[in-house]
Amino acid sequence: MSPGRLIWFKVLIHLGALLPLIWTFYLASIDQLGGDPVESLLHFTGISAFNLLLLSLLTSPLAKMLKQAALIKVRRLLGLYAFFYALVHFLSFIFFELQFEWQFLIAEIIDRPYITVGFVALLILFSLALTSTRKSQITLGKKWQALHNWVYLAGILIALHYIWSVKSDILQPVIYWVLLLLVLFMRKDKLDRWLKKRKKNLA
């Protein structure tokens, strides 16, 4: 991919991530987002965050498969948007679901396992977003990769959060589990190496 093409690709990602969000908020604000705009918004932001995370996890295996090293350059952008959507999801929960009853927020995070794991996933994504710059990569050195491997745990926690949040309609969360496991499988060599290292460290 030429540098010019890459820029266009990034512009496309920005538009693809931002326009649906703005449009969704607009529809919700004029009460045109289904019967319960709050529920629709939580679903939209949650699913989109998960989609973006899966896409960002797919970029490096795809880059290898398609022999398009430049693809790697959009991984950070996708990851940041995954975090951004997760943050909007969390804030929507506080603003529109809890409507600022803060005492409920703490109680929910502690008492509700599905919220607990969602919160932990959000914290992981937050720390990855904070350290996503070139500069942190250099300062953290080897530790950077170790830290960013936590993204796999975040993926698993989100899939858990999702399947725990539904009443009985588990089809969609199960499909997401399958997608996640596929992505993890594509990165199996890396996971193996990581697990071995952990074992060695423990031993």
Binding site: W23, T24, L27, Q32, L33, G34, G35, S40, H43, F44, I47, N51, D169, L171, Q172, I175
Partner: peptide, 13 residues
Amino acid sequence: SMGFFSASALLAS
């Protein structure tokens, strides 16, 4: 339900 038609499923307007 997989979200392939998310535009129509989500934006039930």
